[in-house]
Structure formats: C-alpha cells, structure tokens
Computed example of a mutant assay.
Amino acid sequence: MRVTLLGTGDTTGTPTPGCDCDTCTAARERGVERTRFSVYVESESGETLLLDASPDLRHQLLREGLAPPDAAVITHIHFDHLDGLGNAYRLVDALPVFAADETDPETGESVAETVARKYDYLDALDVRPVAPGETFRVSGLDVTLVPVVHPPLACYGVVVEDPETGGKLAVTGDTNYAIPDASRDALRGADLLLADAIVPASLAPHHPLGGDHRDADGVPRTFGTKHMTREGALALADELDAANARFVHLAHYYPADEAFADPLAVDGETYDL
C-alpha cells in the first residue's frame, strides 16, 4: 500500500495565517506546509482510504494530484479531523465513513453518531459504526480502531494492514502518552508509525497545565493533557519497535532550527509498505 501524508499540522497549521514567527517564515521560504491532519492510503487493488478528513482536504487532494477517496475513517470529532467531510458534496456519489460505535460520556454520542448527525444533509455519506478493537475490511485493507487518550473526548488510533503486501501502518491519533497497553500492542511492530508530537518537551512550561507522564529524567512526554511531546513520541516509537516513525500534528511553536528536522514530517511525504 502507498501512504501519502496529506496533512501533518495541528489545528492552525504551518505556516499559520497571519503569523510571521521564525518557523512560519522558514516554512514559506522552504515552500513546505503542514496543513490540518489527514492521511491517504491506496491499497494494491487501487482502492483508497482516507484517515481523518482535514478541513484542508480539497487543497490537499489538488496539491497531491489525488482523486477523492473511496472510503474514510474518522478518529474523533474535533473539527480539524472531521470537517473535511463536507467536501463529499458533489465530489462523490457515495462515501462510506467508518467511526467508533462506543458512546462518549462527554457528548452522549458515539463518534459515528456525531458524524451522522452533523452531516445528515449529505446523502453521499454512509456512516458505518464499528467496534474498537475489531478489524474490518475496507478498500482492500484491514483496519482496526484502537482507543487512545485525548481528553475530554473519546479518540482512537488506527492500524491499517495490507493483506497483499503484509505492510502495516499505525497511527496514534491525537493522544497523550498514556495509551492503553492493549492499544500499544495493536500499534506495535508497524512498518510506519505516525505519532502525534505537537511540540518539543521544552515548551511544556508554557502550557497552563505544564507537562505530564515524565520520564526518569523528568522530561514530560505529554504536553498539557491532550498531546504527546516530541520526546514522548520518540519514547513511544522506540517502545513499539516501529521500523520507521514520522511525527505529525505538529504546531508552529517548534523552534525554527528544530522544526524541519527528522523525524518531523511535512505534507506530501509518501511511503510504500
């Protein structure tokens, strides 16, 4: 399968509109961007799957020369992962959308129910609830949602396996470092791990809640409560024995001299698994 990183940024992206910080300036000078998060996967059969629907989806597909996907998976209901589904209007005749069926105590709905309610005006969308931890087949790929921790909302990582090549893609989703053990086991051993790493750990003191899940040296592996730091993502990638790890959901708060160094991803990267 071929994996294309459509969007590797956080909720404001890089460059951030109206921002002239050193990192946004460097991104413009380099001609790179980190739009809101989405991943596009093409199976050996040529069928395609979208992991999260960025509000930048139209731009992302045009930029990469890709057709609208055959199906989609939504990990949670934050707008930067969901609102691109509106692009289904007049672009596709039918789009199966897979999302978790577990009721979120915060909203009183499952992710699938929220998606169906929010987009009830789009006849093209066919929302299909799935149970986390249970593998389903879509676009010629085996897909599993795995619970992660992104308070206060229910959120899920995604494991995608290609039965033809044996390739395995693991996406942490938006999460702090306290990913449940069962989910870590499901994410383990990927050919490519895409891990949330919103900022370096050095910026944790700037968050109102500081950092959490500190390592033995006191380095926070969680920024605030919702996202991993770069150091948290590095520790997770090492623990999960990923053959290759790329970090995503990146904020423009990375210092410019660190913002484009490996393993921090930028839009447009492609991987064959």
Rank of each mutant, 00 (worst) to 15 (best):
P208M: 04
G211W: 12
S183G: 08
G210Y: 14
K168G: 06
D191N: 03
V171R: 07
L169C: 04
D238Y: 00
P180V: 01
L192V: 07
T222D: 14
I198W: 10
L234M: 15
T222E: 13
H213F: 13
G210I: 13
T225F: 07
H227A: 05
H206C: 15
L194E: 01
V171G: 04
H227L: 12
L192I: 04
Y177I: 03
G224P: 00
A170R: 01
T229E: 12
S183E: 05
D215M: 07
L236I: 06
K226H: 09
E231N: 05
G166S: 01
H206Y: 14
A190H: 01
T222L: 06
G224A: 03
T172Q: 02
R188G: 13
L169P: 05
T229M: 05
G189D: 11
V219Q: 11
R214Y: 14
G218V: 09
I198V: 15
M228P: 09
T172I: 05
A195L: 03
G224C: 08
L203T: 12
T172R: 02
A186L: 02
T175C: 12
G167A: 01
P205I: 12
D185W: 00
A170N: 02
P205M: 11
S183Y: 08
L194D: 00
I179C: 07
P205A: 15
T172H: 14
P208G: 03
A170Y: 04
G211F: 13
T229N: 03
G189P: 08
G232F: 01
T172A: 07
L209S: 10
A186R: 04
D185L: 10
N176I: 02
P200E: 09
L209I: 12
R188F: 11
V219Y: 01
A235D: 06
R184T: 07
L187S: 01
R221G: 05
T229F: 05
T175Y: 06
R230H: 12
D174Y: 03
V219N: 09
L169R: 08
V219E: 03
A186V: 06
D181F: 15
H207C: 09
L234R: 08
H227P: 04
A233W: 14
A197N: 10
F223K: 01
G211L: 06
P208S: 06
L194M: 05
T165K: 05
M228Y: 13
D196E: 12
L236Q: 03
R184D: 00
D191M: 03
P180T: 04
T225I: 11
L187Y: 04
L192Y: 02
G173E: 09
P208N: 10
L193I: 07
P205C: 11
E231F: 02
N176V: 10
D196L: 13
T225N: 13
F223D: 00
V219H: 04
I198P: 08
A216W: 01
T225D: 14
A178C: 14
H213P: 07
G173K: 10
T165P: 04
N176L: 06
G232M: 07
A201D: 10
K168A: 05
H206K: 14
G224W: 02
A204N: 13
K168R: 14
V199Y: 14
A182G: 04
D174V: 15
G166D: 08
M228I: 06
R188E: 11
M228S: 02
A195Y: 14
I179M: 11
P200D: 12
P220Y: 12
R230P: 07
L236V: 04
G224D: 05
